[in-house]
Design a protein around this nucleic acid. Structure first.
Length: 267
DNA sequence: AGGGATGTTAGAGA
DNA sequence: GTCTCTAACATCCC
């Protein structure tokens, strides 16, 4: 599930659980998702936790642990109840504190242990663009980052090389909030469209963060009402104009949108 | 039962 | 180089 705000939330949780603590010997179940010398983390003191795009970075002096949650990964505190045995499990003991677990039922998530000095190269290899949040992300900033592509704006938003952190939900929700047609070509967007997009992405990130009230993340699939304005709502009436929502397929991903009020840049 | 799902990556082809 | 599509990863949910 995790997109930028969920990864931000989990990274903050990691910081609260790990910062200043001394790691014990890590243990991995079905460790094909881990690369690098996991055991070497044992005995190191965690100096900081930070997020880059949809990655969490745990820095422990000379070594860093990088986590990517893909579709179903998450981090929790031990003991942890309620999950069926996840396919992937990485346990990080912390002296005098509860252990931290990285769990992933599907094992699509990945963990890397690498020298801290190699972090910049690690992210450079992935060709990630600048983070969508935080920072001064004005309409002009978005126009510069995405304006040079001929792809539809929805597809451009998902391209992590242009701007990192926006996923399928964030793209759909932000375009709806900004009243931009997901099929619009970036060249067709006005300054006002870009400005609304800038505000919409920030509102999506900050609203999602504000909705997480516990250190352990709450997953949409754990039940409860759909928290999104339009994502996953099929042909329900648009919450803004009441016209039935529609779905599109763009570059292999489903776009939910409202043809009634998402008119910015309309082709 | 089958299809789709919040992500990334590689490869093919236009 | 840009862009699109497909497959793969593995599991769950409708």
């Amino acid at each position: 599930m995790p997109e930028l705000p969920e990864v931000e939330h989990m990274t903050r949780a990691l910081a609260g659980w790990l910062a200043g603590g001394t790691l014990g010997p890590p243990e991995a179940r079905d460790p094909g998702f881990v690369s690098g010398d996991l055991a070497a983390l044992g005995g190191l003191r965690v100096t900081g936790c930070r997020r880059r795009a949809k990655y969490s970075v745990v820095e422990a002096g000379p070594l860093a642990l990088v986590l990517h949650y893909r579709m179903t990964g998450k981090v929790v505190w031990e003991p942890h109840a309620g999950d069926r045995a996840p396919r992937a499990r990485l346990r990080l003991p912390v002296a005098g504190r509860p252990a931290v677990l990285f769990l992933d039922t599907r094992r699509l998530g990945t963990a890397w242990v690498l020298p801290s000095a190699d972090l910049d190269a690690f992210f450079a290899d992935r060709k990630l663009g600048p983070d969508a949040w935080p920072g001064a992300r004005t309409g002009a900033w978005w126009a510069e980052r995405l304006g040079g592509t001929r792809s539809a704006i929805k597809v451009a938003l998902l391209d992590q090389r242009r701007v990192a952190g926006v996923g399928n939900i964030g793209a759909c929700e932000s375009l709806w909030r900004a009243r931009i047609d997901p099929r619009a070509r970036p060249a067709a967007l006005s300054g006002a469209d870009w400005q609304r997009l800038a505000e919409a992405v920030a509102a999506w990130v900050e609203g999602t963060l504000a909705a997480e009230t516990q250190p352990e993340i709450h997953w949409v699939t754990q039940g409860g009402p759909n928290p999104f304005a339009i994502y996953g709502r099929g042909a329900a009436p648009c919450p803004r104009c009441a016209r039935p929502l529609e779905r599109l397929r763009q570059s292999g991903r489903t776009t939910t949108w409202c043809p009634g009020c998402q008119t910015g840049g309309r082709p």
